[in-house]
Amino acid sequence: MGILCDYFSAPTDEAAATAADVPGGPRAASDPGFEVVELKGIEPVVQLGTLEAILTGVDYDVVTRNPRQGHAVAVRHDGEVLVISLTDELRGALADAEEGRLREVAVSWSETEEFRGLAEPAILAEALVELAGLARRATARDERLYCWVCV
C-alpha cells in the first residue's frame, strides 16, 4: 500500500484542515489555494521527525514530545485521509538551511533505518531543497507547515 504526501503551508490549523475535505487534497483546493510540495512516500511523523533531529541536533525523543509533531489537525474517511502538523522548529530549520547543508543532511537522512537502501541521497536532497523553499515562503507569510496524507 502506498502513501501520498503533499506538504503545504497554511495560516492556521483550521485552514489547513480544509484540505482534508477536498478530493485530491491541497493540490486540488481552490479556496483557499495552497502552495504544495509533493513528496510521495516521505511521511510526516517518523521520517520528518528524524529529519528534524538531524537538522537541528535535537534528540529525536525531544522532537516527538513537541505537541505539533505529528498532530492530526484533520482525520477523514476512517483515517485514510489526514492533515498532520509539522513543528515550527522544523519549518525554521528548513527555512534557515543553506542548500549545501541540506545536501549534507540528505546523506545522513538516507542512512537512517526508515530509508536505508530505499532512497538515494541526491533524491532526498532535491526533496529537502523543495521543502526548504516552501518553509522560507511560509515563514515570510507567517504560515505553518502541514502534510496531507492519503493512504
Rank of each mutant, 00 (worst) to 15 (best):
G2P: 15
L4E: 14
L4T: 13
C5Y: 04
F8Q: 10
S9C: 12
A10S: 01
P11E: 15
E14H: 08
A17G: 12
T18V: 06
D21L: 09
D21N: 11
G24V: 06
P26F: 04
D31A: 14
G33R: 15
G33L: 15
F34T: 01
V37L: 13
V37E: 14
V37I: 15
E38G: 12
E38D: 14
L39I: 07
P44R: 05
V45N: 12
V45E: 10
Q47K: 11
L48R: 07
T50D: 09
T50S: 13
A53P: 08
A53G: 13
I54M: 10
T56R: 03
G57K: 01
V58K: 08
Y60L: 14
V63S: 00
R65K: 13
N66K: 08
N66S: 11
P67K: 09
P67D: 13
R68M: 15
Q69T: 03
Q69V: 01
G70R: 02
V75N: 06
D78R: 03
D78F: 01
G79H: 02
V81D: 08
V83H: 00
V83T: 03
V83F: 00
I84L: 12
S85K: 02
L86W: 05
T87A: 06
E89K: 07
E89H: 05
E89A: 14
L90S: 06
R91W: 02
G92R: 00
A93F: 04
A93N: 07
L94F: 00
A97L: 04
E98L: 04
E99N: 07
G100L: 10
V105G: 13
V107D: 05
S108F: 10
S110H: 07
T112A: 04
E114H: 14
R116A: 15
G117L: 10
A119Y: 13
P121R: 07
P121Q: 08
L124M: 06
A125Y: 07
A125R: 02
E126V: 02
E126I: 00
E130A: 12
A135E: 00
A135G: 03
R136P: 09
R136Y: 03
R136H: 10
R137P: 05
A138Q: 01
A138V: 02
T139Q: 04
R141D: 10
R141V: 02
D142N: 15
D142G: 11
D142F: 00
D142T: 11
E143L: 04
W148Q: 09
W148M: 02
V151Q: 13
